[in-house]
Structures are given as structure tokens and as C-alpha cells.
Write a protein that binds this DNA or RNA. Structure first.
Lengths: 114, 114
DNA sequence: CACAAGAGAAACGCTTGCGTAACGATCGGC
DNA sequence: GCCGATCGTTACGCAAGCGTTTCTCTTGTG
């Protein structure tokens, strides 16, 4: 079910969603952090630091730091992989799911207004 | 011409666009900076620091700093308003237009793939 | 059981962004 | 002409992000 957008609609959608999100929520995630968060919630688990770094083509410390920040915000959680204790498994949280749910609503509502 | 999106489509669109943008371009604009940039390019001029601050509901130094950064990247330009020399008029640039054009293409292409 | 390889975190020095407050330049009404 | 108000910038101390490098813990393979 493809969605056909004109250039004006595409940027307009991004514009109004960004604007609303900035006005509503003081948590100013970077594009990288947002990409990581969405990767965690939209792609089937398990998620590891290494896997996320490869998916975004960034270094591992970038992922570690982003998880520190978003962990402090309650958006994600971490736990050791008991089967291979070198790995860390990144887990979703209720608050993170709610955050993205609201964000999705924002996109949907702005899409309707186009 | 409204665009109807399911929650999965909405977040999926944001996800793939963010992911692509992170992988393609090392310039990691914050959500605020992106909102300012789109405001400048999508809303009819003139744009002032004060006007942008009000539109995004942030303080003026936030705008000044974002303009410093994006100015250094060549995405926007500044010039004094000769009619009221207290004001600064924010202007678009060719590079900024190209940047957003590519970004818009990214959104359109990902929209088609939904 | 020794040891290289792998995963994630921590350390380091640096850059950038933040909010608040103060500042210089300019305007407009009296 | 003066003087309060307005506009944008700068200063300050602080928090957060960056890339590179180093470290610790764990694995598994000889």
C-alpha cells in the first residue's frame, strides 16, 4: 500500500511533525538517537550494541552513549545476555512504547491534514 | 488530499527515513535544528530570530546558535534588515534548498515502499 | 589451560548545545 | 534629543555528544 507524496507534502509532513514534537516535548533527541530508538522498537529483537552500530553505520560508543541517555529517560533498558555474557540485550520499555505511540499519532494526524 | 497512515506505517516511514539520513549524511542536525530549517524554507519570509523563537516556543539564543551552526554548514544565511536595523533577516541558500530537496526525495521514496 | 578474538564500557580531550543573564545597537514616543 | 522598549548576540558555567583508544570480561579453540 504505497503512499504517494509530493515534495511539498513530504517536507511539510516532516516540518509540522518536528515542530509539534519540539513544542510538546523538551526531550530533544538527535536524529541518530531517534533512528536507534525506532530500530529497537520496529525491528524484531534481539538487539545488541554491535548490531545497532552496524545497522546505523556508526561506532559502538555512539550506541553505548545513546543507550545511556535514552536509558536515563526511561525509553530503553539493558540487560546481559545470559547465554553469551559478552552481549548486552537492549529491551523495550513501557514508557518507550508510549513515547513512540504518541509520536506515531503525531505523524498520522499531520498526514491527515495534508 | 489527506494521507491515511497506520501507526506501523507512520513510524516505519520515520524509521527508514531517519536511518537512511544517518547513514548518508554525517551532519547530525537535532530535531530543533531541522524544525528551524524547515520553518525557514516552507513558511513564507521574512524570518526573524524572534519569529522563529516564537514559532518553536524556544528562547532566542537557541535560534542564534542554530543559525550559527547551519550558517557554517551553508544551509542558511543572515543579513540585517535595512528598514529596521534591529532585525536580522534569515535567508535561504542554494545549498540549503538542495539539502532539503534530497531529504524530501528520501521521504517520498520511503513512502512509496510502504 | 593458555590465549587470541570479540563485545561492550570507560577514559580522554574536544566540540557543540543548553538556559540564564547581561550587553550593545536601534527604534519610537514623548 | 532623551529614554524605555525591542532585537539579536555574547558571556558564563554546565551538560551531553563525538571519535579514538584503552580496558575488562567472556568466549571458544587449540
Amino acid at each position: 500500500m504505497p503512499v504517494e507524496l509530493t515534495p511539498s507534502q513530504a517536507l511539510g509532513l516532516w516540518h509540522t511533525v518536528s515542530l509539534e514534537q519540539v513544542r510538546i516535548d523538551s526531550r530533544d533527541l538527535t536524529l541518530r538517537q531517534m533512528a536507534i530508538l525506532l530500530q529497537i522498537y520496529l525491528v524484531p529483537p534481539p538487539h545488541t550494541v554491535r548490531g545497532l552500530a552496524a545497522a546505523l553505520d556508526v561506532t559502538k560508543p555512539v550506541i553505548t552513549r545513546a543507550l545511556d541517555t535514552m536509558g536515563a529517560l526511561g525509553l530503553v533498558d539493558r540487560s546481559r545476555d545470559e547465554r553469551d555474557r559478552r552481549n548486552v540485550i537492549i529491551k523495550r520499555t513501557l514508557e518507550g512504547a508510549l513515547y513512540l505511540e504518541k509520536f506515531g499519532d503525531l505523524i498520522i494526524n499531520q498526514g491527515r491534514k495534508l
